[in-house]
Amino acid sequence: MKTIAVDMDGVLADVYRQFIDMHFQDTGEQLDTKTIRGLKEREAFPLLEKHVHAPGFFENAPLIPGAKEALKQIHEQYKVFIVSAATEFPRSLQEKQSWLNRHFPFIPWQQMVFCGSKEIIRTDIMIDDHFKNLDAFQGKTYLFTQPHNENASSGRHLRVNSWEELVGLLATNKQKKPFL
């Protein structure tokens, strides 16, 4: 069975929505994803450090639309590992595991990988929204579109804009009917 490494923040968890909502709560200023397009997260969200250290930030992030249903279908065809850089923000370790257990109970704890650098990951496929993680990866790569990477050329990484699109591509690669 082929293996897939799936990033959490920006691929499963909608941390952009979380940052935008928290920024509005703190400042009354409504950020628009069009105005932050192409900016690194720390540039787009001036209160990022405050928010990622706030209790509940990672545990309460909303789901990316279609992620739960798609991952359930992918899980039937591939061995799925959730790979998340979590050691930079120590509070996130417990919160991310709790979030995954709540939203993706079909992913066992043995397939949850919390790390610093993802360069050691050796699955067949990696899905991530950051070039720094995909560039060092040896297998097939999918770049999940987020505002910080929208203006950049995807290079050798296949860009995907939604879970529905990704599931269709994975099904095509397996030469079967699309899942959705």
Rank of each mutant, 00 (worst) to 15 (best):
W99N: 06
K96S: 06
R102W: 06
W109D: 12
N101Q: 07
S84D: 08
W99Q: 02
V113W: 08
P105V: 10
W99E: 03
R91T: 02
E88W: 02
T87A: 03
Q110D: 14
Q94V: 13
V113P: 02
R91D: 01
L100E: 12
M112W: 10
F104K: 07
F104M: 06
I107G: 07
I107L: 06
P108Y: 01
M112V: 15
A85Q: 09
H103A: 05
A85N: 03
F89A: 00
I107H: 14
A86I: 12
P105K: 12
R91G: 08
P108Q: 06
L93I: 08
K96G: 09
V113N: 00
P90Y: 12
N101L: 12
P105Q: 13
Q110V: 15
K96M: 03
Q97C: 03
E88Y: 12
A86L: 03
N101A: 11
T87V: 01
W99T: 11
P90W: 10
E88L: 06
M112Q: 02
E95C: 06
S98M: 05
L100V: 15
Q94H: 14
F114L: 14
W99C: 06
F106Y: 14
E95R: 04
E88H: 13
T87N: 09
A85Y: 15
L100S: 10
Q111Y: 08
N101I: 11
P108W: 00
F89D: 10
K96H: 02
S84N: 07
R102A: 15
W99Y: 09
F104T: 02
Q110Y: 00
K96W: 09
P105D: 13
W99K: 09
A85M: 03
H103Y: 06
S92G: 11
R91E: 07
A86W: 00
I107F: 12
R102I: 15
S84A: 01
A85E: 00
V113G: 10
W99A: 04
I107W: 15
Q110S: 13
H103G: 13
V113F: 14
S92K: 00
T87F: 05
F106D: 05
Q111P: 05
P105R: 04
V113S: 11
R91Q: 09
A86Y: 07
S98A: 09
E88I: 06
Q97A: 03
H103M: 08
F89M: 05
F89K: 03
A85D: 00
E95N: 04
W99G: 09
Q97N: 11
Q97D: 14
S98K: 04
M112R: 01
F104C: 07
H103E: 12
M112G: 12
L93E: 09
H103T: 04
E88Q: 12
N101D: 11
F106M: 14
T87L: 04
F114D: 05
A85W: 10
S98N: 14
P90L: 07
F114N: 14
S92I: 03
S98Q: 15
P108N: 05
F106T: 01
E88P: 04
N101V: 13
S92Q: 01
W99F: 08
R102Q: 10
P108M: 02
M112D: 11
N101E: 00
P90M: 05
L100Q: 13
T87K: 06
P108F: 03
P108A: 10
M112S: 02
W99S: 00
F104N: 07
S98L: 10
P108R: 08
L93K: 01
